[in-house]
Design a protein around this nucleic acid. Structure first.
Length: 202
DNA sequence: CTAAAGATGTCCT
DNA sequence: GGACATCTTTAGA
């Protein structure tokens, strides 16, 4: 809290937070603050929607068939950014979970912007705050997350990290099935804040 | 080497 | 509700 620009948040979450069961980490990430430092600029948002992606027991996971060049971050040290490119034009942001060597990641699907909204509007090409980060690819566009950040250590407190809110707002976390997948579609591994307009559409 | 699908978003009807 | 943009990754020949 030395830096007045981050008066809203505490320090970045420790490695131990991520070094746990992926589904649990996904659920507990809802309500945390996603922070992006761009030079002097600070972009912040409350994480309002996540999805858990596991390993051998999860057909929808990139790690389902074992390690590849793309998914290696999922098998690495917990607390690193796994950013992948999809549909020829979009990036998605995940955080690695589980102990080193064990695959797992949490997809950050949506955030409620709280700081740097003007910059996000410019990056997204809309003035509607609801539409800045209500979807995984919208979120990466708003927060300037590209594959350059793949593998970035989220506990370093630089460029991109996740922090505990200093004044958490009470909210109800709802559970549902994951969006945009066909395999293992029945697994209830999506978590989101109930009743707010910042989550992605169904 | 080739092909097909993909953890999506936007614009159109 | 549906088409389509656009290209990386992965699986299979």
């Amino acid at each position: 809290m030395q830096d007045p620009r981050s008066a809203n948040t505490t320090a970045s979450l420790p490695r131990a937070f991520y070094e746990r069961d992926t589904v649990r980490v996904a659920k507990e990430l809802v309500g945390k603050i996603l922070v992006r430092r761009l030079g002097r600029m600070l972009l912040e948002g409350i994480i309002v929607e996540t999805e858990a992606y596991r390993g051998r027991d999860d057909e929808a996971s990139h790690a389902y068939r074992g390690p590849t060049r793309r998914n290696q971050v999922m098998f690495g040290e917990p607390g690193h950014a796994y950013v992948y490119f999809t549909y020829g034009m979009h990036y998605c942001l995940n955080v690695s979970t589980e102990p080193t060597g064990q695959p797992g990641a949490v997809l950050i699907r949506a955030a409620q912007p709280i700081k740097g909204m003007t910059e996000m509007m410019s990056r997204r090409g809309t003035r509607h705050v609801k539409d800045l980060a209500n979807g995984p690819a919208k979120l990466t566009q708003a927060f300037a997350v590209t594959r350059a950040l793949n593998g970035h250590d989220l506990t370093s407190g630089k460029k991109l990290y996740i922090a505990e809110p200093s004044h958490p707002e009470p909210c109800t976390i709802e559970t549902g099935t994951r969006i945009g997948i066909t395999a293992s579609a029945e697994k209830p591994w999506r978590f989101f804040v109930k009743g707010i307009p910042f989550v992605s559409k169904r």
